[in-house]
Nucleic acid binder design. Sequence first.
DNA 1: TATCTTTCATAAGGCCACCTTATGGATCAT
DNA 2: ATGATCCATAAGGTGGCCTTATGAAAGATA
Lengths: 295, 295
Amino acid sequence: MNLPPLAAIRVFEAAARHGNFTKAAEELGMTQAAVSYQIKLLEERVGAALFLRLPRQVALTEIGARLAPSMTDAFEILRAAFATMRESTEGILTITTIPTFAATWLVPRLGSFHMEHPSLAVRLKSTRDMVDFSRQEADVGIRSGQVKWPGLVCHKLFQADFTPMLSPTLAASIGGVKTPEDILKLPILDPGDPWWNIWFNLVGIDKPALRGDLRTRLGDQHLEGRAVLAGQGVGILTPVFFQSELQQGQLIQPFNVVGTSKHAYWLVYPEARRNVPKIRAFRDWMLGHIGEVKT
Amino acid sequence: MNLPPLAAIRVFEAAARHGNFTKAAEELGMTQAAVSYQIKLLEERVGAALFLRLPRQVALTEIGARLAPSMTDAFEILRAAFATMRESTEGILTITTIPTFAATWLVPRLGSFHMEHPSLAVRLKSTRDMVDFSRQEADVGIRSGQVKWPGLVCHKLFQADFTPMLSPTLAASIGGVKTPEDILKLPILDPGDPWWNIWFNLVGIDKPALRGDLRTRLGDQHLEGRAVLAGQGVGILTPVFFQSELQQGQLIQPFNVVGTSKHAYWLVYPEARRNVPKIRAFRDWMLGHIGEVKT
DNA sequence: TATCTTTCATAAGGCCACCTTATGGATCAT
DNA sequence: ATGATCCATAAGGTGGCCTTATGAAAGATA
């Protein structure tokens, strides 16, 4: 019931196909002696001769001839399966990322990635769950955190810096924001965010009196950014996420003072897969384009 | 293009089928740790996760799920091929034998073998060529020779003894054969056969004057036996080959004196296949029935 | 006929791939 | 809270498998 050793079957298949041990050895990248050894092993295992040893050649026995086509069929199936798998997996890159990063940084730049790698399709999985490549199907992940993770290659993308931002309209409503104190005149989105205290401390203001609804917790810089863009209040945001809005004047960053969180954003992927082409492609592209961004 | 290690593929197939490393390990007769090791190996080789490690269970990834059916198909083909091979080879015993033995001893007794082993079909190859299992397809061989052959299990069946024989009619034509000298009155089949001199020496006659045509060389005891049965002359034959003709009175062995050749008849088969069931069956049957024969 | 070439078999020897044992972590069940 | 189940991982030993080297057989060539 049990199959003979697969290595021996493999050698037999090649030898039967070539009708020649030496050629089979070449195909398999081994020596002729190894082929001879494996065939003999298989013959003893199945209890029947598979080749006749004729002078300067071998010929399949009746039994061997009956066996060989099935072996070739089976290996053809295996080869085909792995080939199609390779094709399909080589062509799809699955990225798991936190929603903020997806919406504010990644999605706007994916067009550039497609231009560089037209044959690679990208599949995005946007989730807050901490990436765990052993439990989720993904090639690379983008996560925030303080430390490196064991078993993962971690590239630091940037620190989670933060500074107040608001819409030009909102700023104009109080005649412009010139000093940190001006911010206190305006409604604060998510005043419970600890970043506010840290930032006001940096500009010399202790215990700032923040106006705004404490219950507003958008929980996500992206959503907070939308609210800020809509002029609903002042947000404390990470500048790199709103690069284009700042350039286009849709958002204002009134002060150069930024707070620095211990958290950073990381590109991560399993160490074991560091040399998979699509992963290298994405890493190279990403690190290149992160560098372009002025933090 | 190259396939991943086959052992790993095999383990993956079983694990995918069971959806459980532990069960797969049991099926394959190995430990759970070994399964884990092989799966990991395969994943690194193909550059993609094949299983998701969920709490207390594993689940195929998309890629794994696409791969698994082909793996099962391929192994099913292998299993089926070896199974049918086994069935067909187990049921056919190929015997290569010298023609004399086939005609005089083996064929008349094959019915008995079929009675003991109804599921075994026998294929006879009758040839004078020295048996060489590496060049001919055969399970067992019967050959005459003096020595044992390396790599073969050799069972001595009997010595090639010889003694004059003739038909009752021919004996009667000279009033019966009572002394060795009487034989010299009759035509000798193949008087050039060296056995004649040896036998006459045994009975004290040096340089016997043999009558008969020196050109008559039937070359084969079976054919010589037919000629003797037809009353065409006296032959020097091996008694065991003509057991039944002697018992039924179709042939007469006038003297108990037999010459003994250094040659013997042997049952041989490759040492490596000594435990193949059909070979053991034939060997046991043959040695049992050789023992029955009075030499 | 002699020499060269090709092809497979075999012996010896070394190494690494693979397996086992042992242990730990995570989660579910009771 | 305890036990059971399932998988991952580390450590360690060994035997399977491969290589090298050589020989035998016989076709090819001259």
